[in-house]
């Protein structure tokens, strides 16, 4: 076992660094909780260790150790529950909630990251068992880069054309272009909405994208993301100013209405383009014969 200690340490180090790197890029989903970082880094460390010792333990014929490894891997399922519970609790005091679909997606990502870390550590330590440490470090980094590419999800900008829409009233009904948003009663609210409101029209590029946009969870995620990035001019007990994303079922277009703190229309469009497409909202009717026939 001793001759493999270098491989284990290298695998552990690379795996842990990869976890650190992944934490860095999820600032938006997990805004600055130092204690959250510690929890994820320690679990990432354990995941890296598990991955790193797997092959050396097998080679040393430590079968009991390998069995324990698989047991330990079960623990990572708990991460999903932990994240989901935390975010659900926090969501209750959000003025513009994330919604259950978005939370589920984030929780799944956090669980998945530990398996990615395990894979990177496993690959690195396996390589290091057979080839020099320097080269296996390079190999580990390549594996990490490839995995990051693979897991990168789409954003709304990829599946839809996002552009500005005109916010206007017809009587009491608020429209963004031709898409009905809601009925607003109070005259002051209407005045404020016409002065400061921003409308963004999201036009799906394909029928697959249309089905994704029809998902309520996806639209709630749009509301939340844009409200997070631009701010929502809204307090408790001001339901008129809640950002809303509504659908025109005839064209499949969706429209977001928001009263941002930063009234910059161009930024609102950029923010909508950057909203992640939720895994749970992805639909592929075009992959089936029925879906393709129905679309023409």
């Amino acid at each position: 076992m001793l001759e493999n200690i270098g491989a284990v340490i290298l695998g552990l180090a690379l795996g842990f660094l990869y976890r650190l790197y992944l934490l860095r890029i999820d600032y938006r989903q997990y805004p600055s909780y130092p204690h959250g970082y510690i929890a994820h880094l320690s679990l990432g460390f354990i995941a890296a260790l598990l991955g790193a010792v797997a092959l050396p333990a097998l080679l040393a014929k430590e079968y009991a150790a390998v069995t324990f490894l698989s047991l330990a891997a079960q623990q990572f399922r708990e991460i999903r529950n932990m994240e989901r519970k935390t975010l659900e609790q926090l969501d209750m005091s959000e003025l513009v909630p994330r919604g259950p679909d978005y939370i589920e997606g984030i929780a799944r990502v956090f669980e998945g990251r530990n398996y990615l870390v395990m894979l990177v550590a496993l690959a690195t330590s396996s390589l290091a068992t057979f080839i020099p440490l320097g080269w296996s470090a390079v190999g580990g980094i390549i594996v990490a880069v490839v995995l990051s590419r693979l897991k990168k999800g789409k954003t709304l900008g990829d599946i839809a054309i996002v552009r500005l829409g005109r916010v206007h009233f017809r009587g009491a009904l608020l429209f963004v272009d031709d898409i009905l948003i809601m009925n607003v009663g109070l005259k002051d609210a209407k005045k404020m909405i016409t002065e400061l409101g921003i409308g963004v029209v999201i036009e799906p590029k394909t029928d697959d994208a249309r089905a994704t946009l029809a998902n309520m969870g996806q639209r709630q995620a749009i509301n939340h993301e844009v409200a997070t990035l631009l701010g929502a001019r809204k307090d408790f007990a001001e339901p008129e100013f809640t950002p809303l994303c509504r659908l025109n079922t005839e064209t499949g277009r969706a429209a977001l209405f928001i009263l941002p703190v930063e009234p910059d229309p161009e930024l609102a469009v950029l923010a909508v383009r950057k909203v992640p497409v939720l895994e749970s909202a992805i639909r592929r009717p075009l992959d089936t014969i029925i879906g393709r026939k129905a679309s023409d």
Partner: peptide
Amino acid sequence: REKIALYLSRILNAMVHDLENGTY
């Protein structure tokens, strides 16, 4: 009507809708 509706809305955290026939 505007005033009453505004007060009720803020107190009850409720949305005011207009039926456009004089009734909110």
